[in-house]
């Protein structure tokens, strides 16, 4: 029984962390119409940043032993800076450039982390991170429960922040640019600047997810920033419904559940000589989910509800 609870706590923690990243992607794609092909780079910047700033001294760069919360903020800032650079270069061009550049930044990020031994620990990654609150929560289930609560607080905070943003004038502006850029421009708005704000904010949220992920495992390596994570996070948003934050969170739990279940099923029931191909089968499944949803139900299971976006305070326009 305790094993089941432990596992559920573990599952919920990872799913909630991924849900935060999905919310960040929703700001990009759902609200602003930006394609982010390198979610994992911003997630990774958050994780690496947090562990480098908060970790114990290491042979590689980092190990500044910052208090956890400051290290986490530093990780978020690292993701934001990375997004700012990529966005500045690409957002004034047609949308393909952002798609290609973000995909490229993810490839380059993983590749650099894997090779830069002196900078980020290379293929061995970064370990030696002091988990926060260990003094009074211990190391076992107690800590896991406390951390789950912490992650849930972060998830709810992100959710509320984005919901407010969606209803604020800024959210309406984002949708205006997504639907008709020329019209927004004619009203004196600067689409490039607003897109950059949205891109950096969404990437910072992905960085937050990465920082929480790195803290949870107290370890990050190039294996944590492989492209598969980007596709998983996309599938979560596409299934959940782009433009709907509740859908994004539901999609995260659904897809992460399906992913772990399919992985478990394949390792349990697939013939031994198929085990080598279990990864390939899972890739085919996630690719099919993405394509199938876009073909048959592009609005996702929980479509965007435009009516809700109206200000509820009774303001008249």
């Amino acid at each position: 029984m305790i094993g089941v609870i432990s596992y559920l706590v573990f599952f919920a923690t990872v799913a909630s962390i991924l849900a935060i990243a999905v919310l960040g992607l929703n700001l990009h794609w759902g609200y602003t119409g930006l394609f982010n092909g390198g979610v994992v780079a911003f997630f990774g910047a958050g994780a690496y940043g947090t562990l480098m700033l908060g970790g114990a001294p290491q042979p590689h760069l980092g190990g500044f032993e910052w208090p956890w919360i400051f290290a986490l903020i530093g990780g978020v800032a690292a993701a934001a800076v990375l997004a700012w650079i990529v966005g500045l270069l690409t957002l004034r061009l047609r949308h393909d450039y952002l798609a290609i550049a973000t995909f490229g930044v993810a490839v380059a990020f993983e590749n650099t982390m894997r090779n830069a031994q002196g900078f980020a620990g290379g293929a061995q990654g970064i370990r030696g991170f002091e988990r926060p609150f260990r003094e009074f929560a211990g190391n076992g289930l107690g800590w896991n429960l406390l951390y789950l609560a912490l992650v849930l607080v972060a998830l709810v905070a992100t959710y509320l922040f984005l919901e407010r943003l969606a209803r604020a004038p800024f959210g309406r502006l984002l949708r205006a640019i997504r639907e008709d850029e020329e019209a927004a421009r004619s009203l004196g708005k600067s689409p490039a600047r607003i897109r950059l704000t949205s891109f950096v904010t969404g990437s910072a949220i992905m960085g937050l997810a990465g920082g929480l992920y790195g803290t949870f495992y107290a370890f990050v390596s190039p294996q944590d920033v492989l492209p598969i994570l980007t596709f998983q996070i996309w599938a979560m948003l596409i299934v959940g419904g782009a433009g709907n934050n509740r859908g994004a969170v539901a999609g995260a739990f659904l897809i992460w559940g399906a992913w772990t279940a399919s992985g478990w099923g394949l390792s349990r029931f697939a013939p031994v000589d198929w085990q080598l191909y279990a990864g390939s089968i899972q890739w085919v499944l996630i690719g099919s989910v993405i394509v199938g949803m876009l073909m048959w139900r592009p609005e996702g299971l929980f479509p965007e509800r435009v009516g809700e976006d109206r200000p509820q305070t009774g303001r008249t326009t």
Binding site: F35, G37, H95, D96, A99, F231, W234, I238, W283, V284, I286, G287, S288, V289, I290, V291, L294, M295
Partner: peptide, 9 residues
């Protein structure tokens, strides 16, 4: 673009 990634996978 999203679909093309899915197709590639």
């Amino acid at each position: 673009v999203f679909a093309s990634f899915g197709v590639a996978l």
